[in-house]
């Protein structure tokens, strides 16, 4: 119950932050822009929203606990009968609920735009952002955990590299066509290491089709959920361990 209380309060605070309005504004802008893109609009809008949600997950991850430490509210919270792990898990769940709200908002806008244009949008297109939430949870947890051990910007960059677009040589080439061979090797090497510590994107995402052959879409998604939950919990345990060693 205490974890739920922390999650609810985190969601309340985030929904009142200026970042929420910035996120809502960008998503609204995105939906409006898709009207002008004709046939390409669904995939373009989906990719842009995916990128925004990814960046939001990283930003939330690196600032979630850090902000509360900086303004002293983490210390205030810990003067209640609640453990640091419960606080961290609750905050992560609250931030996930916030991301879910933003993703749901985008989905509604997408459906409205499709209805207005008379275009057919499949249910898969509609729930696309929502089905990525377990992946966002892992990235957010990774960024949050790393931020307890390293400067925030570094934690953010490493978490950014966990994006599956940075995993394969082809995708790096596609994103940065003019990269020098040395810079390419460094980026590819770091990305592979990051994917070793943040496997849901690499293991599940890139092998999604293989998994679905074995377990079906539902089974694969259930596996992804379980995996993401365990991964996030492991990150929370590590972050709590790191914070417990510091004077809060």
């Amino acid at each position: 119950m205490k974890i739920i209380a922390v999650a609810r309060f985190t969601l309340l605070r985030l929904s009142r932050s200026r970042y929420f309005f910035a996120g809502a504004f960008i998503i609204g802008l995105l939906a409006a822009a898709t009207f002008a893109l004709g046939d390409l609009w669904v995939s373009t809008a989906q990719n842009l929203a995916r990128m925004i949600l990814w960046l939001m997950a990283i930003w939330l991850g690196i600032s979630l606990v850090h902000a509360d430490r900086a303004d002293g509210t983490l210390r205030s919270t810990l003067t209640r009968p609640i453990s640091l792990l419960e606080v961290i898990v609750g905050k992560l769940l609250g931030a996930l609920a916030y991301l879910a709200l933003v993703a749901a908002g985008f989905t509604v806008l997408l459906l409205l735009a499709a209805w207005h244009e008379g275009a057919a949008v499949s249910w898969r297109d509609a729930v696309y952002q929502l089905h990525l939430l377990p992946v966002h949870l892992t990235v957010m947890a990774l960024a949050m955990m790393l931020a307890q051990f390293a400067p925030r910007f570094l934690a953010g960059i490493v978490a950014l590299l966990a994006w599956d677009n940075f995993y394969t040589a082809e995708s790096i080439n596609r994103l940065f066509p003019k990269l020098s061979p040395t810079a390419f090797d460094i980026m590819h090497g770091v990305a592979r290491v990051v994917h070793l510590v943040c496997p849901p994107t690499s293991t599940f995402y890139l092998s999604f089709k293989d998994f679905t052959v074995l377990h079906g879409v539902g089974g694969t998604y259930a596996l992804l959920l379980v995996y993401a939950a365990h991964y996030a919990l492991a990150c929370c345990l590590l972050a709590a361990w790191a914070l417990n060693r510091q004077e809060l």
Binding site: A5, R13, G72, T73, P81, I82
Partner: peptide, 24 residues
């Protein structure tokens, strides 16, 4: 504490409700 750290974005009632829930 010497300088009580409160959640500036919340109302007084919300702050107390949160702490009340944490204190069971």
């Amino acid at each position: 504490p010497e300088e009580p750290q409160l959640f500036a974005g919340a109302t007084g009632r919300e702050h107390l409700a949160y702490f009340g829930r944490l204190s069971a």
